[in-house]
Design a protein around this nucleic acid. Structure first.
Lengths: 222, 222
DNA sequence: TTGACACTTCTACGGCGTAGATCATAACGT
DNA sequence: ACGTTATGATCTACGCCGTAGAAGTGTCAA
């Protein structure tokens, strides 16, 4: 049993996972702004460069933290009803976001490649195929479904679902009913907004609209 | 009485907007990673601290860049058909994202407060009220609609819609049809994916699903 | 023993945001 | 005219950051 702190160059029981634990914890509660390789080293009492010996860059360390977090998603088993399965995946991702709000945004930067993600993908694509969609539509809608769920979760984390908190409040209220009557009419509803219900409602709308093959006509999309 | 325009240690016609222009350009083509106050100063041939004299922090400078970019959204006039109006807003945001892919993510960090955004909000909420939704549902679904559109655009920018490009390819292919048959069946569809069509389809599904949950309930606000 | 290797640490470099002091000039009060 | 003040621009310096490269220290096989 060795316990050297200063000037010890003997390799101790240090491996990736120990460092990863500390880094994960730091990122999870300090956020990316408060995260640095040097701080990870400080927390563990080791030289910052030791961290980079195990993860060849900060970016790689972040990627592995993200993989770990995003791999911890908890999916219920398939239910046999495709609508339910889709919704379960959506709920699972949102829960994941709530569990790790400070690092969920990494989902966009580092595309998920873990087993859990492949599993959720399989559920989504299976559901869409079961719904009777062509492979082309299933692929596009499946990816769009992810984008929607991730977008909702990110927006929620970043406070976009609370438009009346923060500096926007007075401005928004000051707009007045004359200029933006519909917006003004919803001010009380914004204040009372229930995120869970909004999520249910939105996911429900998306899923309900899937079998409808008729596209909405409008301006171009390119 | 006061003109207060050019003044300096050595004569210089500098104001916020000139600096903002340069900063915008830098961020727009170098991205946030390549952006720094010092580089903005270098580009303009001025001291970095002069930049911070006009914008009291880097964060504030970024916020104003974001405001400018996000205020440049181009919305078509209301059409009278709520489905079309909703889709037009979605298309406009996606176009904006394509126009400024390196700074679109700031939309999540700094909530939009510009006039253009209030205008688009008004269109969205009006559309949802016209669709017959209660204020509660209109508020929730409207915000969710934004989250969806922003999420799609961000996902697109970050490459999430191209799961077969980059390092995921070999892994995903290697999964094999035994473990993830639905996913495997879609591999050709992923390769041929048309983002525009996926967007149309997804937005169409969302919109189509909106009235599905509850019948018309209350009058509209013209 | 000797050598190869793995792990850790040290040193140093260039870049970052920005606080605080300083300087140059324009505008104003007299 | 003069000095005073205000204001913008600059300079200096501090403490952070990621990380390249060298060097130290231990383990183990030959």
């Amino acid at each position: 049993m060795k316990k050297a702190k200063p000037r010890s160059r003997t390799p101790l029981g240090l491996d990736r996972s120990a460092i990863l634990d500390a880094a994960f914890a730091l990122l999870n509660d300090a956020g990316e702004e408060g995260f640095s390789v040097r701080k990870v080293g400080a927390v563990m009492g080791i030289d910052p460069m030791t961290v980079l010996h195990h993860f060849q860059s900060k970016e790689e360390l972040l990627r592995q933290i993200a993989d770990r977090a995003l791999g911890s998603i908890e999916l219920p088993p398939p239910s046999g009803k495709w609508q339910t399965d889709l919704k379960n995946v959506a709920v699972a991702y949102r829960q994941l976001a709530h569990r790790h709000p400070r690092l969920f945004h990494l989902h966009f930067r580092f595309h998920a490649t873990g087993m859990a993600d492949h599993l959720s993908s399989e559920i989504v694509y299976r559901a869409l195929l079961d719904a009777g969609l062509s492979p082309e539509r299933a692929a596009g809608l499946g990816l769009s479904f992810y984008a929607f769920v991730l977008g909702f979760a990110l927006a929620e984390i970043e406070g976009l679902l609370k438009p009346l908190e923060g500096p926007e409040e007075e401005e928004m209220v000051a707009l007045g009913a004359e200029s933006f009557p519909a917006t003004a009419a919803l001010l009380p509803a914004f204040r009372a907004l229930d995120s869970d219900q909004a999520f249910d409602d939105a996911v429900g709308a998306f899923i309900a609209g899937i079998p409808a093959k008729r596209p909405i006509k409008s301006g171009r999309a390119a």
